[in-house]
Design a protein around this nucleic acid. Structure first.
Lengths: 226, 226
DNA sequence: CTGTGATCGATACAGTGTATCGATCAGTAC
DNA sequence: GTACTGATCGATACACTGTATCGATCACAG
Protein backbone atom coordinates (compact mmCIF):
# COMPACT_ATOMS: atom_id res chain seq x y z
CA UNK A 1 0.00 0.00 0.00
CA UNK A 2 1.41 3.38 -0.90
CA UNK A 3 2.24 5.35 2.16
CA UNK A 4 1.87 8.71 0.51
CA UNK A 5 -1.67 8.02 -0.54
CA UNK A 6 -3.47 10.11 2.00
CA UNK A 7 -7.07 9.25 2.63
CA UNK A 8 -9.41 11.48 0.70
CA UNK A 9 -9.33 14.92 2.22
CA UNK A 10 -12.33 15.24 4.49
CA UNK A 11 -14.20 16.67 1.54
CA UNK A 12 -16.30 18.97 3.65
CA UNK A 13 -16.56 21.81 1.15
CA UNK A 14 -19.80 23.28 2.36
CA UNK A 15 -21.00 21.66 5.54
CA UNK A 16 -24.73 21.53 4.93
CA UNK A 17 -26.21 24.38 6.93
CA UNK A 18 -28.58 23.11 9.55
CA UNK A 19 -31.05 24.40 12.07
CA UNK A 20 -33.84 23.14 14.26
CA UNK A 21 -36.32 24.46 11.77
CA UNK A 22 -34.78 22.66 8.81
CA UNK A 23 -34.73 19.43 10.77
CA UNK A 24 -38.33 19.81 11.89
CA UNK A 25 -39.51 20.64 8.40
CA UNK A 26 -37.76 17.62 6.97
CA UNK A 27 -39.31 15.39 9.62
CA UNK A 28 -42.75 16.77 8.89
CA UNK A 29 -42.33 16.13 5.19
CA UNK A 30 -41.40 12.54 5.93
CA UNK A 31 -44.36 12.09 8.25
CA UNK A 32 -46.76 13.68 5.80
CA UNK A 33 -45.59 11.37 3.06
CA UNK A 34 -45.28 8.03 4.85
CA UNK A 35 -46.63 8.37 8.38
CA UNK A 36 -45.01 8.75 11.75
CA UNK A 37 -43.26 5.40 11.66
CA UNK A 38 -41.31 6.65 8.65
CA UNK A 39 -39.71 9.33 10.79
CA UNK A 40 -36.37 8.11 12.06
CA UNK A 41 -33.36 10.21 12.86
CA UNK A 42 -31.42 8.35 10.22
CA UNK A 43 -33.96 9.09 7.52
CA UNK A 44 -34.23 12.73 8.53
CA UNK A 45 -30.47 13.00 8.36
CA UNK A 46 -30.40 11.35 4.95
CA UNK A 47 -32.98 13.75 3.57
CA UNK A 48 -30.90 16.65 4.83
CA UNK A 49 -27.70 15.12 3.42
CA UNK A 50 -26.16 14.98 6.85
CA UNK A 51 -24.86 12.24 9.10
CA UNK A 52 -27.30 11.17 11.84
CA UNK A 53 -25.31 12.23 14.87
CA UNK A 54 -25.14 15.75 13.54
CA UNK A 55 -28.78 16.21 14.47
CA UNK A 56 -27.97 15.93 18.16
CA UNK A 57 -26.33 19.30 17.97
CA UNK A 58 -29.73 20.82 17.37
CA UNK A 59 -32.22 18.56 19.09
CA UNK A 60 -31.99 16.57 22.29
CA UNK A 61 -33.37 13.38 20.81
CA UNK A 62 -36.30 11.93 18.98
CA UNK A 63 -38.89 12.82 21.60
CA UNK A 64 -37.95 16.47 21.36
CA UNK A 65 -38.15 16.27 17.58
CA UNK A 66 -41.71 14.99 17.84
CA UNK A 67 -42.59 17.80 20.24
CA UNK A 68 -41.14 20.32 17.82
CA UNK A 69 -43.12 18.84 14.96
CA UNK A 70 -46.35 19.18 16.91
CA UNK A 71 -45.60 22.72 17.92
CA UNK A 72 -44.73 23.66 14.34
CA UNK A 73 -48.11 22.48 13.14
CA UNK A 74 -49.77 24.38 15.97
CA UNK A 75 -48.90 27.47 13.96
CA UNK A 76 -51.73 26.46 11.61
CA UNK A 77 -54.30 26.04 14.37
CA UNK A 78 -55.93 29.37 15.00
CA UNK A 79 -59.48 30.36 15.83
CA UNK A 80 -61.22 32.74 13.49
CA UNK A 81 -64.54 34.54 13.48
CA UNK A 82 -66.42 36.46 16.11
CA UNK A 83 -68.52 35.47 19.04
CA UNK A 84 -67.69 32.88 21.63
CA UNK A 85 -69.40 30.01 19.91
CA UNK A 86 -67.83 30.77 16.55
CA UNK A 87 -64.38 31.11 18.09
CA UNK A 88 -64.64 27.75 19.82
CA UNK A 89 -66.13 26.05 16.80
CA UNK A 90 -63.41 27.34 14.53
CA UNK A 91 -60.79 26.23 17.00
CA UNK A 92 -62.08 22.67 16.84
CA UNK A 93 -62.41 22.83 13.06
CA UNK A 94 -58.88 24.17 12.73
CA UNK A 95 -57.57 21.29 14.78
CA UNK A 96 -59.44 18.87 12.58
CA UNK A 97 -58.18 20.58 9.46
CA UNK A 98 -54.59 20.42 10.63
CA UNK A 99 -54.96 16.70 11.27
CA UNK A 100 -56.35 16.22 7.79
CA UNK A 101 -53.22 17.78 6.37
CA UNK A 102 -50.92 15.97 8.81
CA UNK A 103 -52.52 12.68 9.66
CA UNK A 104 -49.70 11.70 12.00
CA UNK A 105 -50.78 14.57 14.23
CA UNK A 106 -53.63 12.41 15.46
CA UNK A 107 -51.06 10.09 17.03
CA UNK A 108 -49.34 12.86 18.93
CA UNK A 109 -52.03 15.39 19.82
CA UNK A 110 -52.79 15.32 23.50
CA UNK A 111 -49.93 12.95 24.10
CA UNK A 112 -47.74 15.57 25.74
CA UNK A 113 -48.32 19.00 27.24
CA UNK A 114 -48.36 21.68 24.60
CA UNK A 115 -46.12 24.43 25.84
CA UNK A 116 -44.27 25.39 22.69
CA UNK A 117 -44.43 28.92 21.32
CA UNK A 118 -46.94 28.21 18.58
CA UNK A 119 -49.21 26.26 20.89
CA UNK A 120 -49.10 29.04 23.44
CA UNK A 121 -49.79 31.59 20.72
CA UNK A 122 -52.85 29.60 19.72
CA UNK A 123 -53.97 29.51 23.33
CA UNK A 124 -53.46 33.24 23.58
CA UNK A 125 -55.59 33.83 20.51
CA UNK A 126 -58.42 31.72 21.88
CA UNK A 127 -58.35 33.21 25.33
CA UNK A 128 -58.16 36.72 23.95
CA UNK A 129 -61.15 36.04 21.73
CA UNK A 130 -63.09 34.81 24.74
CA UNK A 131 -62.77 38.20 26.35
CA UNK A 132 -65.53 38.77 28.84
CA UNK A 133 -65.98 35.17 29.88
CA UNK A 134 -65.66 34.51 33.59
CA UNK A 135 -61.95 34.07 34.18
CA UNK A 136 -62.49 30.81 36.05
CA UNK A 137 -64.52 29.36 33.18
CA UNK A 138 -62.11 30.04 30.34
CA UNK A 139 -59.69 27.18 30.82
CA UNK A 140 -62.30 24.48 31.41
CA UNK A 141 -64.18 25.59 28.31
CA UNK A 142 -61.13 25.61 26.07
CA UNK A 143 -59.92 22.35 27.54
CA UNK A 144 -63.27 20.72 26.85
CA UNK A 145 -63.34 21.83 23.23
CA UNK A 146 -59.78 20.64 22.74
CA UNK A 147 -60.51 17.32 24.37
CA UNK A 148 -63.50 16.74 22.12
CA UNK A 149 -61.62 17.76 19.00
CA UNK A 150 -58.67 15.52 19.75
CA UNK A 151 -60.76 12.49 20.61
CA UNK A 152 -63.07 12.92 17.63
CA UNK A 153 -60.23 13.40 15.21
CA UNK A 154 -58.41 10.35 16.48
CA UNK A 155 -61.42 8.19 15.84
CA UNK A 156 -61.85 9.68 12.40
CA UNK A 157 -58.26 9.00 11.45
CA UNK A 158 -58.40 5.51 12.91
CA UNK A 159 -61.35 4.68 10.68
CA UNK A 160 -59.75 6.15 7.62
CA UNK A 161 -56.62 4.11 8.22
CA UNK A 162 -58.56 0.93 8.74
CA UNK A 163 -60.21 1.49 5.40
CA UNK A 164 -56.94 2.01 3.63
CA UNK A 165 -55.37 -0.99 5.36
CA UNK A 166 -57.86 -3.38 3.80
CA UNK A 167 -56.99 -2.39 0.29
CA UNK A 168 -57.55 1.24 -0.58
CA UNK A 169 -61.10 0.70 -1.67
CA UNK A 170 -63.91 2.18 0.39
CA UNK A 171 -66.72 0.05 -1.02
CA UNK A 172 -64.75 -3.09 -0.33
CA UNK A 173 -64.06 -1.92 3.23
CA UNK A 174 -67.70 -1.17 3.89
CA UNK A 175 -68.50 -4.61 2.58
CA UNK A 176 -65.92 -6.46 4.64
CA UNK A 177 -66.72 -4.51 7.80
CA UNK A 178 -70.39 -5.01 7.14
CA UNK A 179 -70.06 -8.73 6.68
CA UNK A 180 -67.91 -8.99 9.81
CA UNK A 181 -70.50 -7.09 11.79
CA UNK A 182 -73.34 -9.07 10.31
CA UNK A 183 -71.64 -12.30 11.24
CA UNK A 184 -71.03 -10.98 14.74
CA UNK A 185 -74.54 -9.70 15.14
CA UNK A 186 -75.87 -13.03 13.91
CA UNK A 187 -74.80 -14.46 17.24
CA UNK A 188 -77.52 -12.41 18.83
CA UNK A 189 -75.24 -11.11 21.55
CA UNK A 190 -75.55 -7.46 20.53
CA UNK A 191 -79.20 -6.95 19.65
CA UNK A 192 -79.46 -3.26 20.48
CA UNK A 193 -76.22 -2.44 18.71
CA UNK A 194 -77.29 -4.47 15.70
CA UNK A 195 -80.53 -2.55 15.43
CA UNK A 196 -78.79 0.80 15.53
CA UNK A 197 -76.07 -0.16 13.07
CA UNK A 198 -78.64 -1.57 10.67
CA UNK A 199 -81.38 1.00 10.95
CA UNK A 200 -79.66 4.28 11.68
CA UNK A 201 -78.60 6.67 8.97
CA UNK A 202 -74.83 6.56 8.51
CA UNK A 203 -73.37 10.01 8.81
CA UNK A 204 -70.21 11.02 7.06
CA UNK A 205 -67.20 12.21 9.03
CA UNK A 206 -68.01 15.90 8.63
CA UNK A 207 -71.49 15.58 10.06
CA UNK A 208 -70.44 13.30 12.86
CA UNK A 209 -67.79 15.78 13.96
CA UNK A 210 -70.11 18.74 13.79
CA UNK A 211 -72.99 17.12 15.59
CA UNK A 212 -70.84 16.18 18.56
CA UNK A 213 -69.27 19.61 18.53
CA UNK A 214 -72.70 21.22 18.53
CA UNK A 215 -73.70 19.20 21.58
CA UNK A 216 -70.69 20.52 23.40
CA UNK A 217 -71.04 24.11 22.22
CA UNK A 218 -74.71 24.10 23.17
CA UNK A 219 -73.80 23.02 26.67
CA UNK A 220 -71.07 25.63 26.93
CA UNK A 221 -73.23 28.42 25.58
CA UNK A 222 -75.89 27.61 28.14
CA UNK A 223 -73.41 28.25 30.93
CA UNK A 224 -71.23 31.11 29.74
CA UNK A 225 -73.58 32.87 27.37
CA UNK A 226 -72.81 33.60 23.78
CA UNK B 1 -15.08 -34.61 20.86
CA UNK B 2 -16.95 -37.62 22.14
CA UNK B 3 -19.28 -38.91 19.52
CA UNK B 4 -21.69 -40.50 21.98
CA UNK B 5 -22.26 -37.28 23.79
CA UNK B 6 -25.58 -36.45 22.31
CA UNK B 7 -26.67 -32.87 22.64
CA UNK B 8 -28.92 -32.41 25.62
CA UNK B 9 -32.27 -33.97 24.86
CA UNK B 10 -34.59 -31.24 23.80
CA UNK B 11 -35.63 -30.95 27.41
CA UNK B 12 -39.15 -30.04 26.55
CA UNK B 13 -40.81 -31.75 29.51
CA UNK B 14 -43.82 -29.56 29.80
CA UNK B 15 -44.01 -27.10 26.96
CA UNK B 16 -45.38 -24.06 28.74
CA UNK B 17 -49.08 -23.95 27.91
CA UNK B 18 -49.94 -20.85 26.03
CA UNK B 19 -52.95 -18.99 24.75
CA UNK B 20 -53.88 -15.60 23.42
CA UNK B 21 -55.27 -14.72 26.79
CA UNK B 22 -52.10 -15.62 28.67
CA UNK B 23 -50.05 -13.58 26.24
CA UNK B 24 -52.34 -10.59 26.48
CA UNK B 25 -52.41 -10.73 30.26
CA UNK B 26 -48.63 -10.86 30.42
CA UNK B 27 -48.37 -7.90 28.07
CA UNK B 28 -50.84 -5.92 30.16
CA UNK B 29 -48.88 -6.64 33.31
CA UNK B 30 -45.72 -5.38 31.63
CA UNK B 31 -47.45 -2.25 30.40
CA UNK B 32 -49.04 -1.57 33.77
CA UNK B 33 -45.69 -1.86 35.48
CA UNK B 34 -43.39 -0.01 33.10
CA UNK B 35 -45.45 1.61 30.35
CA UNK B 36 -46.14 0.72 26.77
CA UNK B 37 -42.55 1.01 25.63
CA UNK B 38 -41.71 -1.83 28.00
CA UNK B 39 -43.92 -4.17 25.99
CA UNK B 40 -41.83 -6.04 23.47
CA UNK B 41 -42.48 -9.48 22.11
CA UNK B 42 -39.17 -10.61 23.55
CA UNK B 43 -40.05 -9.41 27.04
CA UNK B 44 -43.52 -10.89 26.88
CA UNK B 45 -42.00 -14.19 25.82
CA UNK B 46 -39.46 -14.04 28.63
CA UNK B 47 -42.15 -13.42 31.23
CA UNK B 48 -44.06 -16.42 29.91
CA UNK B 49 -40.88 -18.54 29.87
CA UNK B 50 -41.20 -19.08 26.16
CA UNK B 51 -39.10 -18.29 23.13
CA UNK B 52 -40.22 -15.18 21.20
CA UNK B 53 -41.22 -16.82 17.93
CA UNK B 54 -43.62 -19.06 19.78
CA UNK B 55 -45.95 -16.09 20.22
CA UNK B 56 -46.57 -15.92 16.51
CA UNK B 57 -48.57 -19.09 16.76
CA UNK B 58 -51.17 -17.17 18.74
CA UNK B 59 -50.97 -13.60 17.57
CA UNK B 60 -50.28 -12.13 14.16
CA UNK B 61 -47.76 -9.59 15.38
CA UNK B 62 -47.27 -6.76 17.78
CA UNK B 63 -50.04 -4.60 16.39
CA UNK B 64 -52.56 -7.33 16.98
CA UNK B 65 -51.23 -7.79 20.50
CA UNK B 66 -51.86 -4.11 21.21
CA UNK B 67 -55.38 -4.41 19.82
CA UNK B 68 -56.01 -7.40 22.03
CA UNK B 69 -54.71 -5.53 25.07
CA UNK B 70 -57.10 -2.67 24.41
CA UNK B 71 -60.04 -4.97 23.90
CA UNK B 72 -59.23 -6.86 27.08
CA UNK B 73 -59.38 -3.67 29.10
CA UNK B 74 -62.65 -2.76 27.41
CA UNK B 75 -64.14 -5.50 29.55
CA UNK B 76 -63.80 -3.08 32.47
CA UNK B 77 -65.53 -0.20 30.71
CA UNK B 78 -69.24 -0.49 31.29
CA UNK B 79 -71.93 2.08 31.90
CA UNK B 80 -73.93 1.82 35.10
CA UNK B 81 -76.91 3.63 36.54
CA UNK B 82 -80.24 4.65 35.11
CA UNK B 83 -81.31 7.48 32.89
CA UNK B 84 -79.64 8.66 29.73
CA UNK B 85 -77.48 11.25 31.35
CA UNK B 86 -76.28 8.93 34.07
CA UNK B 87 -75.50 6.18 31.57
CA UNK B 88 -73.42 8.49 29.42
CA UNK B 89 -71.69 10.06 32.39
CA UNK B 90 -70.78 6.69 33.83
CA UNK B 91 -69.49 5.58 30.45
CA UNK B 92 -67.08 8.48 30.37
CA UNK B 93 -66.09 7.97 33.99
CA UNK B 94 -65.51 4.27 33.39
CA UNK B 95 -63.21 5.09 30.50
CA UNK B 96 -61.32 7.50 32.70
CA UNK B 97 -61.13 4.97 35.49
CA UNK B 98 -59.76 2.31 33.18
CA UNK B 99 -57.06 4.70 32.02
CA UNK B 100 -56.13 5.44 35.60
CA UNK B 101 -55.57 1.74 36.16
CA UNK B 102 -53.82 1.26 32.83
CA UNK B 103 -52.09 4.48 31.94
CA UNK B 104 -50.79 3.11 28.64
CA UNK B 105 -54.38 2.91 27.48
CA UNK B 106 -54.30 6.65 26.89
CA UNK B 107 -51.73 6.05 24.15
CA UNK B 108 -53.90 3.53 22.34
CA UNK B 109 -57.51 4.58 22.90
CA UNK B 110 -59.02 5.93 19.75
CA UNK B 111 -55.97 4.94 17.77
CA UNK B 112 -57.70 2.06 16.03
CA UNK B 113 -61.29 1.00 15.50
CA UNK B 114 -62.64 -0.90 18.47
CA UNK B 115 -64.32 -3.95 17.08
CA UNK B 116 -63.21 -6.59 19.56
CA UNK B 117 -65.79 -8.56 21.54
CA UNK B 118 -65.40 -6.62 24.77
CA UNK B 119 -65.58 -3.27 23.03
CA UNK B 120 -68.69 -4.36 21.17
CA UNK B 121 -70.21 -5.65 24.39
CA UNK B 122 -69.61 -2.25 25.95
CA UNK B 123 -71.24 -0.59 22.97
CA UNK B 124 -74.18 -2.94 23.29
CA UNK B 125 -74.61 -2.07 26.95
CA UNK B 126 -74.60 1.65 26.23
CA UNK B 127 -76.94 1.46 23.28
CA UNK B 128 -79.30 -0.82 25.16
CA UNK B 129 -79.36 1.60 28.09
CA UNK B 130 -80.22 4.44 25.70
CA UNK B 131 -83.41 2.67 24.75
CA UNK B 132 -85.97 5.14 23.47
CA UNK B 133 -83.53 7.59 21.98
CA UNK B 134 -84.05 8.37 18.31
CA UNK B 135 -82.20 5.66 16.46
CA UNK B 136 -80.36 8.19 14.29
CA UNK B 137 -79.14 10.07 17.34
CA UNK B 138 -77.67 7.18 19.29
CA UNK B 139 -74.36 6.80 17.51
CA UNK B 140 -73.51 10.49 17.33
CA UNK B 141 -74.25 10.87 21.03
CA UNK B 142 -72.14 7.90 22.08
CA UNK B 143 -69.38 8.92 19.70
CA UNK B 144 -69.31 12.41 21.15
CA UNK B 145 -69.07 11.19 24.73
CA UNK B 146 -66.32 8.78 23.77
CA UNK B 147 -64.44 11.44 21.88
CA UNK B 148 -64.55 13.80 24.84
CA UNK B 149 -63.52 11.11 27.29
CA UNK B 150 -60.57 9.98 25.19
CA UNK B 151 -59.30 13.48 24.52
CA UNK B 152 -59.69 14.60 28.11
CA UNK B 153 -58.02 11.54 29.50
CA UNK B 154 -55.09 11.88 27.14
CA UNK B 155 -54.44 15.39 28.32
CA UNK B 156 -54.73 14.32 31.92
CA UNK B 157 -52.22 11.51 31.49
CA UNK B 158 -49.88 13.75 29.53
CA UNK B 159 -49.79 16.20 32.41
CA UNK B 160 -49.27 13.51 34.98
CA UNK B 161 -46.36 12.11 33.00
CA UNK B 162 -44.77 15.50 32.57
CA UNK B 163 -44.88 15.93 36.32
CA UNK B 164 -43.24 12.61 36.96
CA UNK B 165 -40.61 13.21 34.28
CA UNK B 166 -39.24 16.25 36.10
CA UNK B 167 -38.54 14.31 39.23
CA UNK B 168 -41.51 12.71 40.91
CA UNK B 169 -42.31 15.75 42.97
CA UNK B 170 -45.47 17.68 42.29
CA UNK B 171 -44.50 20.85 44.11
CA UNK B 172 -41.23 21.01 42.23
CA UNK B 173 -43.08 20.50 38.93
CA UNK B 174 -45.57 23.23 39.68
CA UNK B 175 -42.64 25.46 40.52
CA UNK B 176 -40.63 24.72 37.41
CA UNK B 177 -43.65 24.93 35.13
CA UNK B 178 -44.69 28.10 36.86
CA UNK B 179 -41.30 29.71 36.46
CA UNK B 180 -41.14 28.68 32.81
CA UNK B 181 -44.55 30.18 32.19
CA UNK B 182 -43.70 33.30 34.13
CA UNK B 183 -40.58 33.77 32.09
CA UNK B 184 -42.53 33.25 28.91
CA UNK B 185 -45.31 35.55 29.97
CA UNK B 186 -42.76 38.18 30.91
CA UNK B 187 -42.19 38.67 27.20
CA UNK B 188 -45.65 40.15 27.02
CA UNK B 189 -46.59 38.10 24.00
CA UNK B 190 -49.41 36.25 25.73
CA UNK B 191 -51.19 38.82 27.86
CA UNK B 192 -54.64 37.23 27.88
CA UNK B 193 -53.27 33.79 28.58
CA UNK B 194 -51.07 35.18 31.33
CA UNK B 195 -54.04 36.79 33.02
CA UNK B 196 -56.06 33.61 32.97
CA UNK B 197 -53.22 31.40 34.18
CA UNK B 198 -52.41 33.82 36.97
CA UNK B 199 -55.87 34.78 38.12
CA UNK B 200 -58.06 31.76 37.48
CA UNK B 201 -58.67 29.11 40.09
CA UNK B 202 -56.71 25.97 39.26
CA UNK B 203 -59.01 22.99 39.16
CA UNK B 204 -57.84 19.50 39.91
CA UNK B 205 -58.13 16.78 37.30
CA UNK B 206 -61.42 15.42 38.63
CA UNK B 207 -63.20 18.75 38.42
CA UNK B 208 -61.78 19.60 35.05
CA UNK B 209 -62.98 16.32 33.63
CA UNK B 210 -66.44 16.64 35.11
CA UNK B 211 -66.99 20.22 34.08
CA UNK B 212 -66.22 19.50 30.45
CA UNK B 213 -68.35 16.38 30.60
CA UNK B 214 -71.23 18.37 32.06
CA UNK B 215 -71.03 20.85 29.20
CA UNK B 216 -71.36 18.00 26.76
CA UNK B 217 -74.10 16.17 28.64
CA UNK B 218 -76.07 19.39 28.98
CA UNK B 219 -75.93 19.87 25.24
CA UNK B 220 -76.95 16.29 24.58
CA UNK B 221 -79.78 16.36 27.06
CA UNK B 222 -81.16 19.49 25.45
CA UNK B 223 -81.50 17.61 22.18
CA UNK B 224 -82.48 14.08 23.08
CA UNK B 225 -84.20 14.64 26.39
CA UNK B 226 -83.32 12.92 29.61
C1' DC C 1 4.40 26.81 14.51
C1' DT C 2 2.06 24.95 18.42
C1' DG C 3 -1.27 23.88 21.45
C1' DT C 4 -6.33 23.99 22.51
C1' DG C 5 -11.06 23.74 22.53
C1' DA C 6 -14.94 22.92 19.76
C1' DT C 7 -17.19 20.34 16.22
C1' DC C 8 -18.28 16.46 13.80
C1' DG C 9 -19.31 11.84 12.56
C1' DA C 10 -17.70 6.73 12.18
C1' DT C 11 -18.35 3.12 14.91
C1' DA C 12 -20.52 0.43 18.23
C1' DC C 13 -24.11 -1.24 21.33
C1' DA C 14 -28.24 -2.83 22.85
C1' DG C 15 -32.57 -3.28 21.54
C1' DT C 16 -36.66 -3.95 18.23
C1' DG C 17 -40.15 -6.85 14.99
C1' DT C 18 -40.26 -10.68 12.31
C1' DA C 19 -38.80 -14.01 7.98
C1' DT C 20 -36.59 -18.14 7.24
C1' DC C 21 -35.82 -22.74 7.74
C1' DG C 22 -33.72 -26.74 9.93
C1' DA C 23 -34.66 -29.63 13.95
C1' DT C 24 -37.84 -32.13 16.42
C1' DC C 25 -42.02 -34.01 17.65
C1' DA C 26 -46.67 -36.93 17.51
C1' DG C 27 -49.35 -39.62 14.74
C1' DT C 28 -50.31 -42.80 10.92
C1' DA C 29 -49.36 -46.61 7.53
C1' DC C 30 -47.30 -50.51 6.81
C1' DG D 1 -41.20 -52.17 15.10
C1' DT D 2 -40.13 -48.98 11.22
C1' DA D 3 -40.79 -45.32 7.89
C1' DC D 4 -43.00 -41.64 6.39
C1' DT D 5 -45.73 -37.23 6.99
C1' DG D 6 -47.35 -33.06 8.66
C1' DA D 7 -47.32 -29.92 12.34
C1' DT D 8 -44.83 -27.44 15.77
C1' DC D 9 -41.20 -24.99 17.52
C1' DG D 10 -37.38 -21.96 18.04
C1' DA D 11 -32.32 -20.72 16.80
C1' DT D 12 -30.54 -17.77 13.77
C1' DA D 13 -30.42 -13.92 10.93
C1' DC D 14 -31.76 -9.44 8.92
C1' DA D 15 -32.79 -4.89 8.71
C1' DC D 16 -33.67 -1.22 11.46
C1' DT D 17 -34.00 1.78 15.56
C1' DG D 18 -32.06 5.60 19.09
C1' DT D 19 -28.03 7.17 20.91
C1' DA D 20 -23.19 6.83 23.79
C1' DT D 21 -18.53 6.96 22.93
C1' DC D 22 -14.53 8.83 21.36
C1' DG D 23 -11.02 9.56 17.88
C1' DA D 24 -10.33 12.60 13.93
C1' DT D 25 -10.54 17.01 12.29
C1' DC D 26 -11.12 21.72 12.23
C1' DA D 27 -10.53 27.04 13.26
C1' DC D 28 -8.26 29.76 16.05
C1' DA D 29 -5.24 31.74 20.17
C1' DG D 30 -0.67 32.07 21.81
Amino acid sequence: MLVWERPEPPNRPVPAPLSRELIVRAAIRLADADGLEAVSLRKVATVLDVRPMRLYGYIAGKEELLDLMVDAVHAEIRPVGEGRREVLRSLAEATRHAVHEHEWLADLLGGRPQLGPHALAGGEAVVAALDGVDVDAVMPVVAAVNAYAIGAVRREVAERRAERATGMDEKRWQASLGSYLERTFATGRFPALATVVRDAAHLDADHTFRIGLDFLLDGIEARIGR
